[in-house]
Design a protein around this nucleic acid. Structure first.
Length: 295
DNA sequence: GATTAATGCTAAA
DNA sequence: TTAGCCTTAATCT
């Protein structure tokens, strides 16, 4: 379920806590035993994210490739060089949250016994990470990693030179509905169902507009707003697309009920115009939108 | 205790 | 277009 911002946070956390560390790699669940053998005992030199694809590069040239899919998640723990145990990925209660077994003392005695179906366990001298429920988990070569990246569109969280123009071109090349194109990872890498709905609302774009009918200026605004809202998501560790003025009680943090404009708000009045928010299925996913604002 | 839905994607039909 | 993947939390009986 995580969108791109969660995967970028993962890459940052893996770089911080495992970068340059020699890792023991195992598969308590048993489904990744062969891959684990190829990686165990090697040093993780770099953690990378592009869209929702996640890679760990090891010093001998192989990569661990992970895609969390709909319900994958990592959980962590370790000694004081870790910021405390946490989990990132599918919601374990509300968004991403601390999983509660932080060990902040200096008496780290190794990882706990695996709970549930742990596909991969990584263990360093200072901590551990467990992966559950991922769609993709593989040990691959540099060429194979390159092939995965080649299929993807620009990632708004990288926002490299030329990315904005590339997105605009890819969006306007196809007559598919813009709501589908925003979730097409070859057009835009990292956006999922929440950012899709929220950015379309914020930019007042009709979700059924064909890509070919989106003007350059509007396409540019979609990119810019995606960069902005997803960057906030990386910083906050949750998706908040509403401004503080809409948070009840003047709260410093957005209450969950106030965090979105349309996502999961079907039947409730639009925060801007009062029209009831609608929901429909498109591409086997739910699309939320305001029939009043997004003409 | 059983069922369903979820921030996703692939491959088969 | 549909089934399936494989996990958890929330929502039912």
């Amino acid at each position: 379920m995580p969108e791109g911002h969660s995967v970028h946070r993962l890459a940052r956390q893996f770089q911080d806590v495992f970068g340059g560390q020699r890792l023991e790699v195992s598969s308590p669940q048993g489904r990744f035993v062969a891959g684990a053998k190829l990686l165990t005992g090697h040093t993780m030199v770099e953690a990378l994210a592009h869209g929702k694809q996640f890679f760990l590069r090891f010093e001998h040239g192989l990569f661990l490739h992970v895609h969390l899919g709909l319900y994958g998640a990592w959980s962590f723990g370790g000694d004081s060089t870790f910021t405390g145990a946490s989990s990132i990925g599918a919601p374990r209660r509300i968004g991403e949250r601390e999983s509660g077994q932080a060990s902040d003392g200096g008496d780290y005695a190794g990882p706990p016994a695996p709970v549930g179906a742990v596909r991969v366990r990584l263990v360093s001298d200072h901590g551990w990470a467990d992966l559950r429920g991922a769609t993709t988990c593989a040990a691959i070569t540099a060429a194979e990693a390159e092939a995965v990246l080649d299929r993807l569109g620009p990632d708004p969280l990288h926002n490299r030179p030329g990315d904005r123009e590339e997105f605009i071109a890819r969006l306007r090349r196809r007559k598919t509905a813009v709501a589908l194109l925003l979730m097409d990872q070859s057009v835009l890498a990292g956006v999922g169902n929440i950012y899709r709905a929220e950015v379309l609302f914020r930019q007042a774009v009709d979700p059924w507009t064909p890509g070919t009918a989106v003007d350059v200026e509007t396409a540019g605004r979609l990119w810019d707003d995606t960069v902005s809202t997803m960057s906030d998501g990386v910083r906050d560790g949750r998706i908040v697309t509403t401004p503080p003025s809409l948070w009840t009680g003047g709260a410093a943090l957005a209450p969950d009920a106030d965090a979105h404009f349309v996502y999961k708000r079907e039947g409730m009045p639009c925060r801007a115009c009062g029209t009831l928010v609608g929901v429909t299925e498109i591409g086997a996913r739910k699309l939320y939108w305001c029939p009043g604002c997004q003409i």
